[in-house]
């Protein structure tokens, strides 16, 4: 257990040291989403959304629209940074460092979650920006900075880490996993309700949105910040179930990938 913790910390540290020099990561993680965010915000603003059936009841002011969108984008970015950390697994494979990791007795699960947490850690400062944005924009909504924001942060962190673990394992499996990135990314943004409330989805779309833990995380976080009457227990249970399922899937895939690598020795292929 102590070793596991040590590995998680070492993995986070390594990632930070490895990426610190790369401004492109910061650019893609912050600048790009902010541009998209403001683009969306001002597009929405040009319609009178308080009367729009899509947002019926949920959004009744500019502030609540802002919070709705900010939570959507921040949540999405937590998850997106996971995909990026998984993507770097490809580089580790190519550089042979993945083989060096496998050479050690390190617990693979610890490595995988260390990678997700490492990617999140780099976004802590982004979270601060997020918090400040919320404070500025929601004075009339009385967001409690000391309780509500940490809870929101915790929910995003937990669910994104679990998601990131799975992404990392999938990238361990195949060097062609980059395709999956494209397949999963945009649907996640749409179906999780980053820009549009999932309540307004048709049934089939709702069924897809259930798969993504981002959906449930957003429901809960928005419920907290916008003080809407959501079904608390239901959302929390849904989130827990999806996280547990993802965790089990991660472990199963990890066992398979470990066997696959030991049998075929193809870890160095790229």
């Amino acid at each position: 257990m102590k070793d596991t913790f040590k590995i998680v910390i070492a993995e986070m540290k390594k990632q930070h040291r490895h990426n610190f020099h790369s401004y492109s990561i910061y650019f893609s993680l912050l600048l790009w989403p902010i541009i998209i965010f403001f683009n969306t915000y001002y597009t929405y603003l040009s319609f009178d959304l308080t009367k729009a059936p899509v947002f019926s009841g949920l959004i009744n002011s500019k502030q609540s629209l802002l919070i709705f969108l900010i939570t959507g984008f921040i949540g999405y970015n937590f998850f997106y940074s996971m995909v990026q950390s998984a993507w770097q697994m490809g580089a580790e494979r190519q550089n042979g460092t993945l083989e060096t990791i496998i050479l050690s007795p390190a617990n693979w699960l610890a490595v995988v979650y260390g990678r997700s947490l490492g990617a999140l850690f780099q976004n802590v400062w982004m979270f601060s920006t997020f918090s400040i944005l919320i404070i500025i924009s929601s004075r009339s909504l009385e967001v409690n900075f000391f309780t509500q924001i940490p809870i929101a942060f915790f929910i995003f962190t937990l669910s994104a880490t679990v998601w990131g673990g799975l992404m990392n394992v999938i990238f361990l499996f195949s060097r062609d996993a980059a395709i999956l990135n494209n397949v999963l990314d945009d649907p996640m943004e749409f179906f999780s309700g980053v820009r549009v409330p999932t309540e307004t989805f048709p049934v089939w779309a709702k069924m897809i949105s259930v798969i993504f833990p981002l959906t449930h995380s957003l429901t809960i976080v928005r419920g907290i910040l916008l003080k809407t009457n959501i079904a608390w227990m239901e959302a929390a249970i849904k989130l827990s179930i999806s996280l547990v399922l993802l965790f089990i899937l991660t472990i199963v895939l990890l066992k398979l990938v470990e066997k696959n690598i030991r049998d075929n020795g193809n870890i160095t292929f790229y």
Partner: peptide
């Protein structure tokens, strides 16, 4: 130094 710190940690 950083490389060795990382790989050393993998061995606990």
């Amino acid at each position: 130094q950083e490389n060795l710190e990382y790989f050393g940690a993998l061995y606990g």
